[in-house]
Amino acid sequence: MDASPPPEMPLGKLVKSLPERLAERVLEDVMTGRLKPGDRLKEELLAQTHAVSRATVREALIALARQGYVVRIPRSGARIAEFSGQDLDDLFELRAALLSTAAGRYTRRAGPAQRADLESLVVDLEGLAAKPDTSPQDFATQSVRIQTFLTERCGNNHLPDMYKRLAGMGMWQLIRGQASSFLTQAGRAESAADWRRLADRVLANDAEGAERAARLLLEHSAVRVRQHFDEAVRVEQQP
């Protein structure tokens, strides 16, 4: 008996709401540096700038606050969240724990075809790392693609959203401070080597080794990010 086709996505679900689109626009301004950590977000100004209602602005700010990009202070309004070096360390520690769990679970669940899929993604990353003119953004996109692949296929239904939220909380302030883990070719090469170590452990069906490799991968990334972040802070503090 043929299986019933999956229900189509309702049309109303395919179009993002105004608050969602406004939240994306504000986040884009943060990532490009037009909005800085600590900047106040005035509802009236946002409403006028984007030709939307203040209710739409409030919904967008609430959504951004849930994601950690905005801090809402009673009687003071909303501001772009500020993160310290310790915040970055804490976020990476949690991400490392989650990615380690995902890598171990994936290794235990994956068959030959699934392991080959991971191998293909890592080979593509290694190809990017080998090219001197690869942009940090292109390399980061592939790295995120592999992380998403592992977390979404590890068999824990709660882990992907948790990991995505933690990764997102750390992303914009890294861009703001130019504290990318992949700014240099050496950094990209180190990351590719870390992913190779993890992929080899998965191919060998070594779940514990995959867990250790995933944790080491993010520990190395955290060191590179923290170095760039601290340098950006020093530059900002110079008179």
Rank of each mutant, 00 (worst) to 15 (best):
S143I: 14
A167P: 07
H158T: 10
F139N: 02
G170W: 12
R165I: 10
N156E: 05
Q147P: 05
D133Q: 08
C154Y: 00
H158M: 09
T134Q: 00
Y163H: 15
M171F: 04
N157F: 06
F139H: 04
T134I: 06
P160I: 07
M162K: 02
A140P: 06
P160L: 05
P160W: 04
P160E: 01
N157M: 07
L166C: 08
P136V: 08
K164Y: 09
A140I: 03
F149R: 08
N156R: 00
P136S: 08
I146F: 11
G170L: 09
R153T: 12
N157K: 13
A167R: 03
T151K: 04
W172P: 11
D161L: 15
T141D: 08
T141S: 03
G168T: 13
C154Q: 01
D138C: 06
Q142Y: 05
Q142G: 02
A140D: 08
E152I: 04
Q137F: 03
G168M: 15
W172G: 10
Q137S: 02
M171K: 08
M169P: 11
T134K: 02
M162R: 02
L166N: 10
D161K: 09
D138V: 11
D138T: 12
T141Q: 03
G155C: 07
G170E: 11
I146C: 13
R165T: 14
A167H: 11
E152V: 07
T148Q: 09
H158Y: 05
T141P: 00
H158E: 09
P136M: 10
N156G: 04
W172L: 13
D161M: 12
T151Q: 10
Q147C: 11
M171Q: 00
S143V: 15
Y163I: 08
Q137E: 02
R153D: 10
A167L: 05
Q142W: 09
G155P: 05
M162P: 01
C154K: 01
A140F: 12
S135G: 06
F139D: 00
S143K: 14
M171L: 09
C154N: 02
M169V: 08
G170N: 14
P136G: 08
T148F: 10
V144P: 03
T134M: 07
E152D: 12
W172C: 12
D133C: 02
L159M: 06
D138L: 14
L166R: 04
Y163N: 13
N157H: 09
D138S: 15
Q142T: 04
G155I: 04
N157T: 14
T141K: 03
N157G: 04
S135W: 02
P136H: 09
G168S: 10
A167M: 13
T148G: 11
E152C: 02
T148R: 12
S143G: 15
S135I: 01
D138R: 13
T148I: 15
D133V: 06
P160Y: 03
S143H: 15
D138A: 15
T141Y: 07
L150H: 00
E152H: 13
R165S: 14
C154D: 00
